[in-house]
Each structure stands twice: as C-alpha cells, then as structure tokens.
Write a protein that binds this DNA or RNA. Structure first.
Lengths: 208, 208
DNA sequence: CCTCGGTTGTGAAATTTTTCACAAGTGTTA
DNA sequence: TAACACTTGTGAAAAATTTCACAACCGAGG
C-alpha cells in the first residue's frame, strides 16, 4: 500500500478512475478497450495495475466495478473529503455555485475572502468567512483540501493560512507558483496550459 | 530546433517562461535562484537549457530578458495566436470576458455555441457564432487554437469541427477525454486535479 | 595578476519509466 | 475434449529522464 507509485502511474490511474465512474459497474473491459478510452497503451495500463498491486482476478478482462473499487481502495477515494475555496472571485465562486459532482468524493464546505462585503452580499449554500478566520475555520471544520483562487500576491499568505489550519493538499489556480515540502500542492494555470499546448504543436506556422 | 524535447523539459521551460514574464528583463538569475522560484532543482534547469540548445552566454548567471527571448524563440512564442472558445457556459464565457493577458500571446477572436439565443443575448467584444459555422469560421479567421468548454457528449463532435477548420491545438475542459493523432490535445479536468492531489497526499487520515 | 566564491554546460552514471515478449489462464464453439 | 481467439500479469530489455561531478569560466577584491 505504501510503496511509492510513480507519479505518472498515479495520474493514469486517476484518469482510468474517471472513465470507470461514468460506466456501468458490470461492463467488462480489456486493457486494450480501456486503453482506447483513455489514450494509454494497453501494456502500460496492465503494468500500472501490476505495480499498484492488483491481484489476479481473471484472465478475461476487468469488471469495471471491481477495477473502480481497486483504485478507490488504493488511493482511499472511499470517504468524502472536505474542501474549502479561498477567493470568491469569478473562478472561486464557480466552484461554490457548481460543486464538482464526482460521486460525492469532494464536498465544498467553506469559502473565504478578504472582502467582507462580498461575503455578505453573495448568496450561497456554502458558508462564507473572512480570510483572517481561515486557519481557525479549517481546523474547526476539519477541512482536508484547499482551492486557492486569489490574486498572485495573496497566494503565499493564503497557503500559509491553510497550512496553519492543518490542510493536507492545495490546488492553486492563482498565477503564483506554490510549492511546499510538507503538503501536496498542485499548480494549475490556464495561460500556461495554452502555452504548453503551443510548445507541443510540432510544426506551427503562425497565421498571417 | 526540431530535436524533440522531452515533454517534461517543455513543461518546465514553460513554467520558467512564466516567472520570467513577470520580472524585470535586467534581473540576473543563477540556476539555483531560478530553481527556488519554480521548485525545480538547479541542475535540472541547467540540463533543460542545455538540451534545448542554449548557447553559452556567460558563466555568471542568466539575464532574465535573454532567457525569456531564448525560450520565446525556441517555442515560437513571439507572434500572437488566435484562439476560439466553444461553449459559452460559465467557464467558456469567463475566457471571453477575462481574456488571458500573457503579454498578448493569445487573442480570443471567436466564441461558438449551439444555443442561438445565448449568442444573441450575450454582450461581448468577441464575436459569437452558432456552432455549425465553426469549421468555416475557424478557417476564415485563421484560428490556431481552440478551447472546448462544452458538455461531455458534445466534446467529440466539437473536436471534429475544430479539426475540420484546421485548428492546431485544443485545450479541452469538458469531462470527455479527447485525444488525436494529428493535432495536439490537452485535457484539463478540475475534479481530476483534486483527485490526483488526494492520491499524492502521503498519509491522509480522513476527517471523522 | 592571482585567488576565491560563485557560476555554467555537459558527458557519464544512476535511476526511473516504458515497452516488449511470453507463459499461463479463460471462455466459447464444436 | 480440443482448438482457437482472446485475455492478464510480469520479469527482463530498452528507452527516457534525472542526477551527479567536474572542467572551464566570471568578476570582484585585493
């Protein structure tokens, strides 16, 4: 269980988990069928499952439900995680208004913003608090994950507040690049995705 | 120039490009200083630059401006790219309303949606068109990149329409997993980022 | 001019990750 | 039962990537 899986393997298993979620549990999939759905070669999928510790069940394909349960157990996706959002701007509020529905795996339980007016004006089922209460509320509400959707200059302090509250992981949408030795941090940056895409295009000839 | 760089190297260079953009061109950076800013070991940065073909300039640090220009030239980030958005929902319209500002590298030039009403009602500086005109408009307006922000079931057909118009790369925010052998495709999925984060947390003890 | 602390660029080593190849298992059809 | 067309799991080979170590270089301060 605690053998450190290659990052790429983790990422691929998450992808597989996603397609399995939207699939009948009884569906039987071969590694090659599954591979076509997620754009991963069949042998890589088999290897990933192998190193992840998949125990032999049959040599005639995987039952979607069983595979789902295997990955769920492996990464402890079974119990729902409490998530908070820092920064109630356009992006932040979209998380609060349209919570992710992944089988109830994540529950948005709180929002934070430095702007008290915003907190009071905004209508929301999710309770909103001023930013300075962040550490306390995170501790109090036993929040596991944080989404940072604040401007770049506020990102670092937000991270620190979240850490102080004992958060375990951060998904950072601010333009700042965050990292931490104690907790897991993932940076997502839209413009950078576009840039990466551009860099990966083999023979781009620019428009006139 | 055409030597195929490792994907990871490309990704790291994009990250470095990002921090350089927000920095005075005259700033002098050593590989270790730069490394701290982007959370990459110094020797990895040096190696990346080395395989990317960086020519020796000095043995006393990198000038931010020069490094920026080097990466810009390497990936042809110099001329702006035309981008369109398919799906004028919450996410899609956020791209249209708050265009990314990365030094004018990307210009949102068109939006598409199947819902004609939405197109007529929405106020926007960016011209909006019905989805069935997508291929034609993309060709006509010489659009380079597409952002897909449509529901899962419409993702595949949207990709095909974009390809038909001759698009070079797609950033897919729909829950569908897209791939293509001809053009560059990048899938971004929020819930999956949370899931990956969860999977990467070493010793997560769930709340009560 | 010489030394010292700091720097880069890069072959070579070490490590990680992917790919391959195949023994062995399954289920169906006859 | 036998043959066949499929499948998995995995050790070993291959390939890709990261890390290391170090020669060569820079600039400042005597």
């Amino acid at each position: 269980m605690s053998i450190q899986l290659p990052v790429q393997t983790v990422s691929r298993l998450c992808l597989i988990y996603r397609v399995l979620l939207g699939m009948d549990r009884e569906t039987v999939l071969s590694s090659s069928k599954l591979g076509k759905l997620v754009n991963i070669p069949a042998h890589t999928i088999r290897k990933d499952l192998s190193v992840a510790g998949k125990v032999k069940s049959s040599n005639a394909g995987y039952k979607a439900g069983e595979l789902l349960d295997f990955i769920k157990g492996l990464f402890r996706f079974d119990s729902p995680l409490r998530v908070c959002v820092a920064g109630i701007g356009l992006l932040g509020s979209s998380f609060i208004k349209n919570p992710v529905q992944e089988g109830g795996q994540f529950i948005i339980v709180a929002g934070f913003d430095t702007n008290i007016n915003k907190i009071e004006v905004m209508k929301s089922d999710v309770p909103l608090f001023p930013a300075y209460e962040m550490a306390d509320k995170i501790r109090e509400m036993r929040i596991d994950l944080g989404i940072i959707a604040v401007p770049a200059q506020a990102a670092e302090i937000t991270k620190e507040r979240m850490k102080e509250g004992g958060i375990k992981g951060i998904l950072n949408f601010s333009p700042a690049i965050l990292g931490d030795k104690d907790i897991a941090v993932r940076n997502v940056h839209f413009a950078e995705e576009l840039r990466f895409l551009t860099a990966m295009i083999p023979d781009l000839e620019k428009g006139v």
